[in-house]
């Protein structure tokens, strides 16, 4: 650094063989650039997964669940009350004004269950039964089944099909935090409360599901008798992250798979042919990444 470039000096001591001072910094910079790019790619993938790819996942889950529920409805074995296994299909939901068609409602409102479709809240009666039934659904990811729910108009039809028949509800209003709750339904009346998250204000609001919105719909007539209810979910919040041990364990395993896939890819890249590494390795890596994302997304709030 102290060397004056305008004058040549003769070294009389040992020659300095270390790399020129700019070089190391250069490498750090390039490496830093790569890390930043990799980070950007990773975040980009996660966003892509959440906003686009997860919808395919729900679509697939819905197809499977629809088949299952259809069979159960035909056989009369669809659930009419507790106990219902978490994640099992319980009802079919139609909201014509929002273009929601034959959506399978599953049991439970954890993030994991809402990845498959709207979830029936444990502890409330099943849709169509006497009392209040709560169904929650995502607004931003995984097919965003309830994305348009905040725009629903009073009087819109909501049709639910369960083992007990088809039930038609009419929307009576939309509630946010602090709005008065409607009085509990009287004898023989049924109410369906649909829950999702929504943003406020700005044009970015679609990407900012920051508060819950409740849509109440009253059963037109003919509530079915309430079946036994399951115990309420010990963690009732829908817009908070739940970190449970099972998900963490699964995530750890999935990350191991991803690491393995990446290691294999790198090995093939260096030792085998690069083209072959692309063809054979890339799908494996993407699949592993998908798995990690899917499990990682379970740590996010359920309504997002």
């Amino acid at each position: 650094m102290s060397a004056d470039p305008t004058r040549t000096r003769v070294h009389d001591g040992e020659v300095d063989a270390s790399p020129p001072p700019g070089r190391g910094e250069e490498q750090v910079r390039v490496a830093g650039g790569r890390v930043m790019l990799a980070l950007s790619l990773l975040i980009g993938w996660f966003l892509l997964y959440l906003l686009v790819l997860s919808s395919f996942e729900q679509n697939h889950a819905q197809n499977v669940l629809y088949g299952e529920l259809r069979t159960q409805l035909a056989e009369g074995t669809a659930p009419t009350g507790a106990p219902v296994r978490a994640g099992a299909p319980v009802a079919l939901l139609d909201i014509p004004s929002l273009d929601v068609e034959s959506l399978v409602v599953v049991e439970g409102t954890r993030s994991r269950q809402l990845q498959d479709g709207p979830g029936h809240r444990a502890g409330t009666v099943l849709p169509g039964q006497e009392g209040v039934s709560v169904v929650a659904g995502r607004s931003t990811s995984y097919g965003k089944p309830f994305a348009d729910l905040p725009d629903i108009v009073r009087g819109a039809r909501v049709v639910v099909t369960t083992a007990q028949g088809e039930f038609e509800y009419l929307v009576t209003g939309t509630r946010f935090d602090g709005d008065p709750m409607p009085a509990p339904p009287g004898e023989g009346a049924g109410r369906l409360t649909l829950v999702t998250s929504t943003g406020t204000g700005s044009w970015l609001s679609r990407l900012q599901p920051s508060r819950t919105v409740y849509v109440d719909a009253e059963l037109r007539s003919g509530a079915a008798a309430a079946g036994p209810r399951s115990a309420p979910d010990p963690e009732p919040t829908l817009l908070a992250s739940h970190v449970d041990r099972l998900s963490l364990a699964e995530l750890a395993l999935a990350l191991q798979v991803l690491l393995g896939a990446l290691a294999g890819f790198v090995w093939a890249w260096n030792r085998w042919s690069r083209k072959a590494a692309w063809i054979a390795g890339a799908p494996v890596v993407v699949a592993a990444l998908w798995l990690v994302s899917s499990i990682g997304a379970r740590l996010l709030p359920a309504l997002i």
Partner: peptide, 18 residues
Amino acid sequence: SLTSGEQSSLGRVGLPTL
């Protein structure tokens, strides 16, 4: 009784920040 809705700051800033 009043609706006790939930708020999520993660939801509000999460995606745009990412």
